[in-house]
C-alpha cells in the first residue's frame, strides 16, 4: 500500500545496483503515469527509484549525427527547441500531444516508452524515425530498437536491473521528413483511438526511396509495418500507392474494442491516419529538397 523507501541514485551504477538488490522497485522519471497508477491502485510499488538525479539523464542534444534524448528529459525540453522541431517535425508533434502544458513540464519521452501503453503517441513516431534505445544493466550495455522495446500492454523488454538511459534518433537527410497523426474525438486532452507515424525519403526525382510506417493503438504494442512502407517505396504517393499503404496498415492492425473505439473502426481509421501522415511527410520532404536547392 505504502512506499517504504524513495531512492535518488546519483549514478547509473548506483541505480542499477538498487534495482538488482531490491525487488518491488518502480523507476520514476516524470511520474505522470506512475503517480496516477499509484493513486488508483494499479501499481503499488514498495520502493521508488527516482532517476532524475543521474547526471545527463535529462539532457537533450542535437548534433549533425542525430538527436539524443535523455530518458528523463521532460517533454518541454524538446518541444521548446525549434531546431529539433525543424529536424523531426513528426516526432515533436507526437511529443506535443502528450497531456497538457503542465504535464509536459514533467513527463518524458523515455517514460512514455517504458510505460508501454499501446496508445502512446511518441512510440509510433519514434519507430518511424528509427529511434534506438540505449539500455544499461548489471550485465552491461545494449541497444534496442524502439519497435522491439515494448512486449505487450504495460510490458517492456527491460530486465529487473536494467534502465533506459537515452534514445538516439539519426538525423534525417535532405530529402527526408517525418509526420505523426493520431485520431481523437477531441482536439486535445485525449488518448489516441489510433495513431500513425511515417518517415520517408525522396530521391531527386521525387520518388519515395525509403520509408518507415508505424501504427499505434492498433495492436498490443506500437508496430512497424514494413508492408505499408513497401507499398509506397518506389512511388510518388499516387492514389493507388496511398490506398495500398492504408490497406497494409489496416491489415497489420489487430486492435481491441473498448470504450475508445471498436476494433473495426480502429482498423479502418489507422489506414486513414497512415496515408495522411505519409502525405504530410512527403510534403515536408519536398519542401526540404526545395530549400536545399
Amino acid at each position: 500500500m505504502t512506499v517504504s523507501r524513495f531512492y535518488s541514485p546519483q549514478s547509473i551504477a548506483e541505480a542499477t545496483a538498487i534495482l538488482r538488490q531490491q525487488s518491488g522497485c518502480q523507476v520514476l522519471a516524470g511520474g505522470t503515469d506512475l503517480l496516477v497508477q499509484m493513486r488508483n491502485g494499479v501499481k503499488q510499488p514498495e520502493y521508488i527509484v527516482d532517476i532524475k538525479e543521474i547526471p545527463g539523464i535529462r539532457d537533450v542534444t542535437l548534433t549533425n549525427q542525430g538527436l539524443t534524448l535523455g530518458a528523463a528529459a521532460p517533454a518541454q525540453s524538446v518541444t521548446e527547441r525549434p531546431d529539433i522541431a525543424a529536424a523531426y517535425p513528426g516526432l515533436v508533434e507526437a511529443i506535443d500531444m502528450i497531456g497538457s502544458t503542465q504535464i509536459q513540464g514533467r513527463c518524458s519521452v523515455g517514460g512514455n516508452l517504458c510505460n508501454a501503453s499501446p496508445a502512446a503517441d511518441t512510440v509510433p513516431a519514434l519507430i518511424a524515425v528509427g529511434a534506438v534505445c540505449h539500455v544499461v544493466g548489471g550485465e552491461g550495455v545494449r541497444q534496442v530498437r524502439v519497435e522491439d522495446f515494448n512486449t505487450g500492454p504495460g510490458e517492456n523488454c527491460l530486465k529487473r536491473d536494467e534502465l533506459l538511459i537515452s534514445l538516439f534518433i539519426p538525423r534525417p537527410g535532405v530529402g527526408s521528413a517525418d509526420a505523426y497523426l493520431r485520431f481523437t474525438p477531441r482536439t486535445e486532452m485525449d488518448i489516441a483511438v489510433v495513431g500513425a507515424g511515417v518517415s520517408l525519403s525522396l530521391d531527386p526525382m521525387g520518388t519515395v526511396s525509403a520509408a518507415r510506417v508505424a501504427i499505434g493503438a492498433a495492436a498490443p504494442t506500437a508496430l512497424l509495418v514494413e508492408e505499408a512502407a513497401a507499398a509506397i517505396i518506389g512511388t510518388t504517393l499516387e492514389e493507388s500507392a496511398l490506398a495500398a499503404l492504408a490497406a497494409a496498415a489496416g491489415a497489420a492492425a489487430s486492435p481491441i474494442s473498448d470504450k475508445r473505439g471498436s476494433a473495426g473502426y480502429r482498423t479502418k481509421v489507422v489506414g486513414v491516419m497512415a496515408r495522411r501522415a505519409a502525405q504530410i511527410a512527403c510534403d515536408r520532404a519536398q519542401q526540404r529538397q526545395r530549400r536545399a536547392h
Binding site: R186, T187, D190, I191, K259
Partner: peptide, 16 residues
Amino acid sequence: LENPGFLDYRMPVASD
C-alpha cells in the same frame, strides 16, 4: 460506468 473521468467522458475542450 467505464468512463468516470474527464479523459473518457469527453466534454468539449476550448480548441474543439
